[in-house]
Write a protein that binds this DNA or RNA. Structure first.
Lengths: 193, 193
DNA sequence: GAACCATACGGACCGTCGGTCCGTTTATGC
DNA sequence: GCATAAACGGACCGACGGTCCGTATGGTTC
């Protein structure tokens, strides 16, 4: 099959929609108050265009999240020290969790939107499987570390968007304090007998 | 003020509604597919009664959750070994987390419904604060343990309903395996240098 | 640049849901 | 019994996610 390229206006609109959604989520205090109609209006586009381009609300949010997170994902997969492969596993696992925490702090609204949108839970979204698989692999390289599968889930749960939002947003814990707390915690998990 | 007792039919209906909701959540695969109208119909009651009695959907689910969880909460607060006070802190923290995991396994649908209902996140529901405060207190009793506040959040995140549901439900990990995995993990956290 | 067609557009429209409102019924105290 | 406050229940409302189809437009070919 010849794999026709999409029309120029379709590409333009797709970008406009993602940008509009990003803006609206950042502006509003709770992602559920941002309706699909709002996003369409902000992007200067009909509602039909949203649903044609992204399938449904979850699809749109996932696409946006994926686009923003992709750089970090790449860095972890093939980037330089300390995120990339080639870093000793204990240090790398800590670096990955720290990077994830920072991302969720920097994109709090978006991350929140994603976890709310993914039907019921973030689990089952393919990007979660990727993070879990990667982290589990790193943990498994630590000598004498057992239970890496569950530990990977549990460590990722420690940086879930709603928890981060609760601590940073509602309780006003400063960024560096959170990073330090997370580092202390991960150290406990990673350097256990 | 004379503090009039509620009418008998109101009490009866309240029970009927809670029982109906419990049944419906247990039956359906996803809590969001259980509507307030469904619950009212199942309880043989008008929709108005639901909202008068519980305020809104979140209130109803919280009331139900609270009712089911209360026994465990009591046991932790004032019960016998190993959940109650008087147990050495490392052992007690592990026991509390195990009890919470078991509860979420036994009431998977209900727990899922709660986390979905609480606007945005389970944080901010007063019962979460109670668990966090309690666990933090136990952790703080462990000699040389620092970062108990964040650690309490992180450990509770490891037994969140949607994670438990993902592992036990979608991935079919057996109950005892999960309990063992959690125990291994908590041991790492609690017995760190 | 004209004509053709696949592709994309957009907003009226639909079903459902949480939540409200108010006329009606009923339990309770005297 | 009777009066009355309390509770009932279901018609009703506004909002939302998602669909549908007549219309517009970018791309291609001559």
């Amino acid at each position: 099959m010849p794999e026709r390229r999409p029309r120029a206006d379709a590409v333009r609109n797709r970008e406009a929609v993602l940008a509009a959604a990003d803006r609206l989520f950042a502006r509003s205090d709770s992602p559920e108050h941002v309706s699909m109609a709002d996003i369409a209006a902000e992007a200067g586009v009909g509602k039909g265009t949203l649903f044609r381009g992204f399938g449904d609300r979850t699809g749109l949010i996932q696409a946006l999240y994926e686009a923003r997170l992709d750089p970090i994902r790449r860095t972890v997969a093939e980037g330089p020290h300390p995120l990339g492969p080639g870093t000793p596993p204990v240090q790398r696992a800590a670096a990955v969790l720290d990077a994830l925490l920072c991302f969720k702090l920097d994109h709090r609204h978006l991350s929140l939107a994603l976890e709310e949108a993914a039907t019921g839970s973030p689990y089952g979204a393919e990007h979660y499987d990727w993070w879990h698989g990667t982290l589990r692999g790193v943990l498994a390289e630590i000598p004498g570390f057992d239970g890496s599968d569950f530990a990977a889930h549990a460590l990722l749960a420690a940086v879930r968007a709603d928890l981060v939002d609760h601590l940073a947003g509602r309780r006003n814990i400063p960024r560096e304090r959170l990073r330090a707390d997370l580092a202390t915690y991960t150290t406990k998990v990673l350097n256990s007998p």
